[in-house]
Design a protein around this nucleic acid. Structure first.
Lengths: 249, 249
DNA sequence: CGTTGTGTTGACAAGAGTCAATGGCAGTGG
DNA sequence: CCACTGCCATTGACTCTTGTCAACACAACG
């Protein structure tokens, strides 16, 4: 089994039930690999992609610029994610897909995916579900950006990333990689870079976590969750068995 | 043809191509009607719905409360919209669906929809696309809430609603109904009610629009669009023919 | 060894939130 | 028909979170 498909299967297994037939079908998917450097634009706003990306290594994000130069990052994607599956049903990209860090992707032609969908009702449901979980994450981010103050927002982001990283096996010893600049962080949270820096210092100073050299280490999960008002239900991981175990941690 | 299906067909025709077979299939959908008063909770966060809603008359919104009592409204839905189609693939609602005004809905059992999906590949694509457009709208709201100031945000909201209302035939003489309190408005934009009031006064004062008795009248579309930095591309209405004509207006 | 991007800090400005009070208006019930 | 009630819109005064500007340290890199 290729690395790419392994990642994808792990991801789909985390959000639903993957039957043996679907597993086989996925393994026969033709993929093409591509590598990107930090800041590389993978798919630009306005483009009309014919492939979907699967993240193999590294991180990517989706973002959009306002005419005044302000950038909002909508989502951050880690290995196993399909960050632009929605491209299947959108002619034109309304935002860009960018390499957050150096990363490796697998490109899968839309036609190949459509073939899978025709063949498997259950896989259609699972991939559709994936795009729906995507929008659930948007709602959670919107809630934070719109209604919470900077420290809560930031804590919430760390909580989400921790749980998601755990779901795809990226956590060890309460640590996970987060190769992201403070500027990126600021643009995810809708605050200025200066304020992001100060907020991060507050959270670090409170002993809730460490974040050095691109690695986050959770120190006080319960308190971090409390500050973040974090409820992982919106991630709908396996609707909800696995999530519970992580959170009780 | 029932009113409900008429609305739905109009909506689906606005976002894609609806074939004659699909049209027939939709017309055979069994629906059940329900009416709600302003502020009624249609589906509560945490519920596990077995039907999907189609808005027939009036407005509904999706929202979520933070423990501190702050509310974010994620989306506002008008006749023709399917505000909780995502419930098809989510076990538990992570937010609430609420009646913004008195409204009338058609309830369609998930099982009936699943039947349609099995029978029609093209309808699957179209409904999937609908949920994807939903998340495109989330991105646009997130961009505004995160990166724009209050006046731009509010102008953008009015622009979006104007174009969407037009797409389903709710606009006449540059006016469309918007039965929403300023408190609701504030919670859509992520600002306080007091600030929403002042911002609205600014926009009215600049002569960009009128908003009285639940009816918005656009007075200076070009300038409103300019203030909002509004680009309707993200609505993906028919990818993009119809949109162009509205905007050139 | 300069260049560049990032992280950090201080000082200041400004957008937005909070609190409180008022007036209008619709609905209710005597 | 008239108090009474509640919700909403509006306004003023004040506070506070956050943004902006500017400077500097530091590390990575060619």
């Amino acid at each position: 089994m290729t690395l790419a498909i392994d990642r994808l299967i792990r991801r789909l297994d985390a959000i639903g039930q993957l039957g043996p037939n679907d597993r086989l079908a996925l393994q026969s998917l033709p993929v093409q690999y591509a590598s990107y450097q930090r800041q590389d634009v993978i798919i630009e706003e306005g483009a009309e992609p014919t492939t979907a990306c699967l993240v193999i290594d590294g991180f990517v994000h989706r973002s959009k610029l306002l005419p005044n130069g302000h950038r909002q990052i909508f989502s951050l994607h880690m290995p196993g994610d399909l960050p632009d599956l929605h491209g299947l049903y959108l002619k034109t990209m309304d935002h860009s897909l960018v390499a957050t860090s150096a990363c490796k992707l697998a490109l899968i032609h839309h036609s190949a995916i459509r073939g899978l969908l025709r063949a498997s009702e259950s896989l259609t449901a699972l991939l559709w579900r994936d795009t729906i979980l995507d929008s659930a994450a948007f709602r959670a981010w919107m809630l934070m950006i719109g209604q919470a103050e900077a420290d809560t927002r930031m804590a919430h982001l760390f909580c989400e990333l921790y749980v998601r990283a755990d779901a795809v096996g990226l956590v060890s010893n309460d640590s996970f990689p987060l190769p992201v600049s403070q500027i990126d962080l600021a643009d995810m949270l809708g605050i200025s870079a200066v304020h992001a820096n100060r907020t991060l210092q507050d959270i670090r100073g409170a002993g809730l976590l460490n974040y050095e050299k691109g690695v986050v280490t959770i120190l006080r999960w319960a308190e971090l969750q409390e500050l973040a008002q974090f409820d992982p239900q919106y991630l709908h991981l396996r609707d909800d068995d696995e999530v519970k175990s992580v959170v009780g941690l």
